[in-house]
Write a protein that binds this DNA or RNA. Structure first.
Length: 484
RNA sequence: GGCGGUAUCGUCUAGGGGACUAGGACACGGCCCUCUCAAGGCUGGAACACGGGUUCGAAUCCCGUUACCGCUACCA
């Protein structure tokens, strides 16, 4: 079998959408799995809506996801001459004809048909024009479009996800392939490009199912070999409608900025419309390639539920090799303004420990950044809820924290075992028995400002002797000077 | 309206005639672990759209109905 050639062909009219990203992913997985190539084609023939900014966003999104395309990017707009030449070849081999009907006439007839509750279909009147008539109109410089002449019969293909799909040709009108200005219509441009690029498998959203019979007809008229087709289901929002802006974050860039890992995004997207079987859910990129099979492709549209994405991101956060995680977290940490990359590099052992402790209770990179705050700043900000709950009994809190301060200052070293022994002794002394948690919680607030954190001794170690004791003093001071 | 596509827990899905008392995951509830929060383990509730066939036997095959989605442009 020849090398499979696939393409991802977005139009640059917005950001890279999660649906587009998933289409790109499946194309990429198939290509990587079967030793093929995935090309990128920017469909920028709609000048009014296409922007360079969108093109850049598509590149960025794909790069972030690690979906590298092969060969040079194809810009559809650069191939206009070939599109036109292909259409003219069809005119020459009599599979297409000139249509002199104006847009206004067409609109009128369409409106009339609709008023009669009839479905409108071009009546082929220009296909019945005599040669002399055509010559005369051409001599008059009358503008014309080029229409494809749809033959009798039916058009069907064996779709990789839907099996056989068939359309009666009588339901397909003689569609326009070239506008009055000589530019190609979508289906014309796509087929011309797919042939030129040697595409062997067209894998795209199932909103293109109805375009497929038209495209197949064009391949035949051009004498080209048909590619295989695979139509992927759509992605919908929670309300079951096609995913769009009003559903919230739909651009892959949005998720990047929310602290989602590209590996998690890919994994989540892959599971929307594909299942490897055996109840496998968590996969790395390489595992997805190894497991990918069009047999597992789903026919049904999937609903984009970010809850599972977040869970999955938490899983990937823990699966990711720590140095890779570090390279994702460091820029975010620096952006938070609490530290410099240099400082972190100079304290790599400490930084590593911090990450190990935080990653297990974070779901996103942003969670890590937020939780890292207390360890990177000089002073701590008390969470009002935590203060209200954990420092409720002020007298007790004061004696407890003072006792902790005393016990910890007396310690010769600063290690977890010794500290735990000392603090449990304090609890014992205060008559708390084995309920040392009663002093750990107030202590946690004093050290981190929050009632949730890694294990208290890990926090103490991370903060170090000096900062820990200073925070205890500050807490004592805060309590003494606050009236409730 | 016409044409096409789709239909399993709230969501993502396994399932391709008997292994189904329909499995897993997210979310939700409970329990365990525990200094908090997570993570983890155990556990509970929760689905074959409906109606006809075919068959000894149907979530699985066929037909119809319904619902949803897409296309129906000199947009892509």
């Amino acid at each position: 079998m020849a090398t499979p050639r696939l393409r991802f062909a977005p139009s640059p009219t917005g950001y890279l959408h999660v649906g587009g990203a998933r289409t790109a992913l499946f194309n990429w997985l198939y290509a990587r799995k079967h030793g093929g190539v995935m090309l990128l084609r920017i469909e920028d023939t709609d000048k009014a809506r296409s922007t360079d900014e969108s093109t850049r966003a598509i590149f960025e999104g794909l790069n972030w996801l690690g979906l590298q395309w092969d060969e040079d990017v194809v810009h559809q707009g650069a191939n206009l001459d070939r599109h036109r030449a292909d259409a003219e070849r069809m005119l020459a081999n009599d599979t297409a004809y000139r249509c002199f009907c104006t847009q206004e006439e067409l609109a009128e007839r369409r409106a009339a048909a609709e008023a009669n509750k009839d479905s409108f279909k071009y009546d082929r009147r220009c296909d019945r024009l005599s040669a002399a008539d055509i010559a005369a109109r051409l001599a008059d410089n009358m503008p014309f479009t080029v229409r494809f002449r749809v033959s009798e019969g039916h058009t069907s293909w064996n779709d990789l996800v839907h099996d056989t799909i068939s359309f009666p040709n009588k339901d397909i009108e003689d569609f326009i392939i070239l506008r009055t200005d000589g530019t190609p219509i979508y289906n014309m441009a796509v087929v011309s490009d797919d042939i030129a690029m040697g595409i062997t498998l067209v894998m795209r959203g199932d909103d293109h199912i109805s375009n497929t019979p038209k495209q197949i007809l064009l391949y035949r008229a051009l004498g080209a070999e048909l590619p295989q087709f695979a139509h992927l289901p759509m992605i919908h929002g929670l309300d079951g409608k096609k995913l769009s802006k009003r559903h919230g974050a739909t651009a892959v860039g949005d998720y990047q900025h929310l602290g989602i890992l590209p590996g998690a995004m890919l994994n989540f997207l892959a599971l929307l419309g594909w299942a490897p079987g055996d109840d496998i859910e968590l996969m790395t990129r390489d595992e997805m390639i190894a497991l990918f099979d069009t047999k597992g492709l789903q026919k049904k549209a999937a609903i984009f539920d970010t809850k599972k994405l977040e869970w999955m991101n938490g899983q990937h956060l823990n699966l990711l090799p720590i140095d890779e995680l570090m390279s994702r977290v460091t820029p975010a940490l620096v952006a938070s303004g609490h530290v410099s990359a240099e400082w972190l590099a100079g304290h790599s052992e400490w930084y590593l420990k911090l990450l190990e402790l935080l990653k297990v209770r974070a779901r996103t990179v942003d969670d890590i950044v937020q939780q890292a705050g207390p360890y990177l700043t000089e002073s701590v900000v008390y969470d009002p809820d935590a203060v209200a709950r954990q420092w409720k009994d002020r007298a007790f809190t004061e004696t407890a924290l003072a006792g902790v301060h005393e016990a910890l200052s007396a310690l010769p070293g600063w290690n977890a075992t010794a500290m735990e022994e000392a603090l449990r002794a304090v609890a014992e002394r205060l008559g708390l028995g084995d309920k040392a948690g009663k002093i750990f919680q107030p202590l946690r607030v004093a050290l981190t400002g929050s009632s949730a954190s890694p294990g208290i001794f890990d926090v103490l170690e991370l903060l170090g002797r000096e900062r820990s004791l200073a925070r205890l003093s500050s807490a004592l001071h805060f309590i003494a000077n606050t009236t409730t």
